[in-house]
Amino acid sequence: MKTLNFKTNITTDDAIEAVTLPLNAIEPLDGWNIDPQHQDHLLTVQTVDNRVSEQIIAAVEKAGFQATLIPELSDL
């Protein structure tokens, strides 16, 4: 299991709701969580395939938000 962490601009429950469907549509994800109170509005993703980071970024952008992989916090 790999953990990927992303800095986002997701700060509200409505924003979390907006990214839920696109993120849930990514097959290799085993789970994800957004901490809107974290200084980086951290999106943490559990996956067996760490190559999905581009898919995650695209899914968040499709919902109208931004996500940037934080390599130093991720198990790459």
Score class of each variant (00 low, 15 high):
residue 1 M to K: 08
residue 2 K to V: 05
residue 3 T to A: 06
residue 3 T to S: 09
residue 3 T to V: 14
residue 3 T to L: 09
residue 3 T to N: 15
residue 5 N to K: 13
residue 5 N to G: 01
residue 5 N to V: 11
residue 6 F to P: 03
residue 6 F to E: 09
residue 8 T to Y: 00
residue 8 T to V: 05
residue 10 I to H: 04
residue 11 T to Q: 07
residue 13 D to A: 15
residue 13 D to W: 13
residue 13 D to M: 11
residue 13 D to H: 14
residue 14 D to F: 11
residue 14 D to C: 11
residue 15 A to W: 07
residue 15 A to E: 10
residue 15 A to S: 11
residue 17 E to S: 14
residue 17 E to D: 14
residue 17 E to P: 01
residue 17 E to C: 08
residue 18 A to M: 11
residue 23 L to C: 03
residue 23 L to E: 02
residue 23 L to M: 14
residue 23 L to W: 00
residue 24 N to G: 10
residue 24 N to M: 12
residue 26 I to N: 07
residue 26 I to S: 06
residue 27 E to Q: 15
residue 27 E to S: 14
residue 27 E to F: 14
residue 28 P to C: 12
residue 29 L to R: 05
residue 29 L to I: 15
residue 29 L to P: 00
residue 29 L to G: 06
residue 30 D to Y: 09
residue 30 D to W: 09
residue 32 W to K: 02
residue 32 W to T: 03
residue 32 W to R: 00
residue 32 W to D: 00
residue 33 N to Q: 08
residue 35 D to C: 03
residue 35 D to N: 12
residue 36 P to M: 06
residue 37 Q to K: 11
residue 38 H to I: 01
residue 39 Q to R: 15
residue 40 D to R: 06
residue 41 H to R: 13
residue 41 H to D: 08
residue 41 H to K: 15
residue 42 L to P: 01
residue 43 L to K: 07
residue 43 L to V: 07
residue 43 L to D: 02
residue 43 L to W: 06
residue 43 L to F: 02
residue 44 T to I: 07
residue 44 T to K: 05
residue 45 V to E: 00
residue 45 V to M: 02
residue 45 V to I: 13
residue 47 T to F: 03
residue 47 T to P: 04
residue 47 T to C: 04
residue 47 T to D: 04
residue 48 V to F: 12
residue 48 V to P: 04
residue 48 V to M: 14
residue 49 D to H: 11
residue 50 N to D: 11
residue 52 V to P: 08
residue 52 V to A: 05
residue 52 V to S: 10
residue 54 E to R: 13
residue 54 E to V: 13
residue 55 Q to H: 15
residue 55 Q to M: 15
residue 55 Q to V: 03
residue 55 Q to T: 15
residue 55 Q to N: 12
residue 55 Q to L: 13
residue 56 I to G: 05
residue 56 I to H: 03
residue 57 I to R: 01
residue 57 I to K: 04
residue 57 I to L: 08
residue 58 A to K: 12
residue 58 A to H: 01
residue 61 E to F: 03
residue 62 K to V: 03
residue 62 K to G: 01
residue 63 A to E: 05
residue 63 A to D: 10
residue 63 A to C: 04
residue 63 A to G: 01
residue 64 G to S: 13
residue 65 F to W: 00
residue 65 F to Y: 14
residue 66 Q to P: 00
residue 66 Q to F: 04
residue 66 Q to S: 11
residue 67 A to E: 01
residue 67 A to L: 11
residue 68 T to Q: 11
residue 68 T to S: 12
residue 68 T to P: 01
residue 70 I to C: 07
residue 70 I to W: 03
residue 71 P to I: 10
residue 72 E to R: 06
residue 73 L to M: 12
residue 73 L to I: 05
residue 73 L to F: 08
residue 74 S to T: 12
residue 74 S to R: 14
residue 76 L to A: 08
